[in-house]
Amino acid sequence: MTRAGHHPHDITRATPSPVTEDDTLDATVNGTVNGTANADRPIPFRRLLAVEARKLVDTRSGMIITLVMVGLVVASVVARGAVVRPKPQTLAGTAGIALGTLLPVLAILTMTGEWTHRTALTTFVLEPRRHRVLAAKSVPPLVAAVALSLFAMLVAVPVTAVVAEVGGIPADWDVQPIWLLGWTGVNVLVAAQGLALGALLLNAPAAIVISLTTPVLWAVVGRLGPVGAALAEWLDLNTTCAPLTSGDMTWGEGARLATSAVFWIVIPMAAGLVRLLRKEVT
């Protein structure tokens, strides 16, 4: 097979030269390049997604943080089960502490990883449409947030049963769907906040420090008089997303949640996207 035949729109065909006129060329070097490869079609998004999901767990740090999260979800559910009245909703909710801390970290690492080891040089050469890579990187942590929320609920059910059996306490099996939905939503928002911070700063340590210290900072700001209290009330995502789990969110609460989500997710993500598109990759 000639190279010209191999690549339908091979430029060498349009530029007759002694080299391409020789049909006996081509070689073992070229091997079996086929599969679903097509040079004339953009890389399908699902492929970028598969690659970015794999990058999340194919290094030690990614693998460790994923395992630690799964482990902490189980541990926190079991630990809470040992001390409170058996109720799956309460037990699962405890896992929110671990998820609220580690989901943003996972999200930050996926966004900043390319810049720590300069693998961006490879990634953006294979897919120069950088916004597609950003989008592909955003999906796995959000999916992980949903999956781990449901996983916490799944773990909570047998733990509740065991605690009720062992302790002889009647279990409260009441799980409000709206609570589960709202609580999952909180975890997704927390992951999205991590993604946005990571995309904006492209620096893992800085983003992780900001992500982990903001709850403390808001507690301080909330006590700085009426202005501080108003700021915390409207911008502290951890506070504003709490009503999601109650199932009877008011318009005011919705407005506060939207405001803080714009402030922590939409604005930094948009700024991060612009930065990424303009950035010199070195």
Binding site: T32, V33, N34, G35, T36, A37, N38, I43, P44, R47, L48, A50, V51, R54, K55, D58, T122, L126, E127
Partner: peptide, 10 residues
Amino acid sequence: TLGAMTLGLP
């Protein structure tokens, strides 16, 4: 492998 996946190669 990551490169081959991205490009859709076997």
